[in-house]
Simulated scan of single mutants.
Amino acid sequence: MSVSFYGTLAAADAYFADRGKAGWAAASDSDRLAALVRGSQAIDALYEPRFTGRRTGGYDQVLSWPRSGATTVNGAVIADDATPLPVTYAAYEAAALELSEPGSLTPVIVAARTVKREKVGPLETEYAVADTSDDMIASAKPVLTMLDGLLYPLLRPVLPGILVV
């Protein structure tokens, strides 16, 4: 396994071959490797706050996994030196998205450039505008159902808010 990304290029190639994703194999080795790095970084950026446990090698560890004290949603203990297969598969899926559209998983948001209304001839479009910068960031993040499904067993459960009076 690389220090810069989850899994290996050969394993990613086999993963996509099994799924009939020819676009992956058509890219150069360097493009696929760069996509694996960006995909792994996106997994860590989007999901690390919801992973259980903490980085085994401390904060200086490049990737979020392996983790110590990590468990599945069902309470199964994950070995301190293990990177669960769903993390690797999610990184491969994120890499495929990054290969097809670099930067799509980590959008850059500039509030001053957000268009609320656009008119071209007789056609007019008005875009939804977020009230706060947090709302704007949340609305710009992609919804990644495939990744959510793969990583679900490794994420902290989302509990409804509890109001104490």
Rank of each mutant, 00 (worst) to 15 (best):
G7F: 02
L9S: 06
D13M: 07
D18F: 05
R19Q: 12
R19P: 04
G20M: 01
K21Y: 11
A22M: 09
G23R: 10
G23Q: 08
G23T: 08
A26Y: 05
D29I: 10
L36Y: 03
V37L: 07
G39E: 04
S40T: 08
D44G: 09
L46A: 12
T52H: 08
T56N: 09
G57D: 10
G57Q: 10
D60P: 08
V62E: 12
R67L: 02
N74G: 11
N74P: 00
N74M: 12
N74W: 12
A76P: 00
I78H: 01
T83N: 03
L85K: 15
P86Y: 04
P86G: 06
P86S: 07
T88W: 00
E93Q: 10
E98G: 06
S100I: 05
P102C: 02
P102D: 01
S104V: 14
L105S: 03
V108A: 11
I109C: 10
A111N: 11
A111T: 11
T114Y: 07
K116L: 09
R117T: 13
E118F: 15
K119C: 08
L123F: 13
L123K: 14
E124Y: 02
D131K: 14
S133Y: 13
S133G: 03
S133M: 12
A138L: 07
A140D: 02
A140F: 07
P142Y: 00
V143T: 15
Y152M: 12
Y152I: 07
L154F: 10
L155T: 08
R156A: 13
P157G: 09
I162V: 15
I162E: 15
L163G: 13
